[in-house]
C-alpha cells in the first residue's frame, strides 16, 4: 500500500494513504509520514516526533475507536498549508469511522500520580500534544472522526 498523490495547487499540496485497522499496518503509516516529512525539509528530530505522534493517533484509533476490529479504514492525509502569514503548516489529518472520542473526558495525566499507580497505557494523547505544535480533534456527528496533527515547517 503506498501513498498516491491527489493533486496539488498553489495553496497546498496533498498526499493520501489508506490503511486497514491492524497494528501491523502502523509501520506503513510511519513510513508514509516520515517520507513526506523528510521531503518537506524537516530534520531527523522533527521527523521522529511527527512519526511517533502519527503512530500514537493510529494506535488509539485501532484500540479505542475500532476496538481492535480489523479491516476498518484509517485515512491519512498530508497537507501543507502556506498561509499569507507564516508559519507554514505541515498537517497530518487522520480520519476514522469508529466510536468518537470525547475530548472533554480526557484529562492530561498527572505524571507523578500516574507513575505512583504504575498505570499502563493512556499516554498517547499526552505524547501527541508534546510532540506536535497543534493537535485538534473533531468528533464526527454520524460522519468520520478527525484528528489534525500540525508541525510548523522550518522557515
Amino acid at each position: 500500500m503506498t501513498g498516491r498523490p491527489v493533486g496539488s495547487n498553489k495553496k497546498h499540496t496533498a498526499r493520501q494513504l489508506r490503511i486497514l485497522s491492524t497494528t501491523e499496518n502502523l509501520e506503513l503509516a510511519r513510513r508514509f509520514v516520515a517520507d513526506s516529512a523528510r521531503q518537506h525539509g524537516f530534520d531527523q528530530d522533527d521527523i521522529d516526533k511527527i512519526t511517533v505522534a502519527v503512530d500514537e493517533a493510529c494506535t488509539n484509533i485501532i484500540k479505542h475507536a475500532y476496538k481492535k476490529a480489523p479491516n476498518k479504514e484509517i485515512d491519512i492525509e498530508i497537507r501543507v498549508e502556506e498561509p499569507q502569514r507564516s508559519p507554514r503548516k505541515f498537517m497530518v489529518i487522520i480520519e476514522d469511522h469508529g466510536a468518537p472520542f470525547d475530548p472533554t473526558t480526557y484529562h492530561a495525566p498527572d505524571l507523578q500520580k500516574y507513575f505512583k499507580e504504575y498505570r499502563v497505557g493512556g499516554l498517547g494523547i499526552f505524547l501527541m500534544n508534546k510532540l506536535m505544535d497543534e493537535v485538534q480533534y473533531t468528533a464526527g456527528a454520524g460522519k468520520s472522526n478527525q484528528i489534525r496533527l500540525v508541525k510548523y515547517l522550518p522557515s
Binding site: L26, D55, Y118, L123
Partner: peptide
C-alpha cells in the same frame, strides 16, 4: 530503532 507509548507501557506493567 523505535519506541511508542505502547512499548513504554510494557515496562510500566512489570516494574512494580
Amino acid at each position: 530503532d523505535y519506541i511508542s507509548s505502547a512499548g513504554l507501557g510494557v515496562f510500566m506493567q512489570f516494574i512494580e
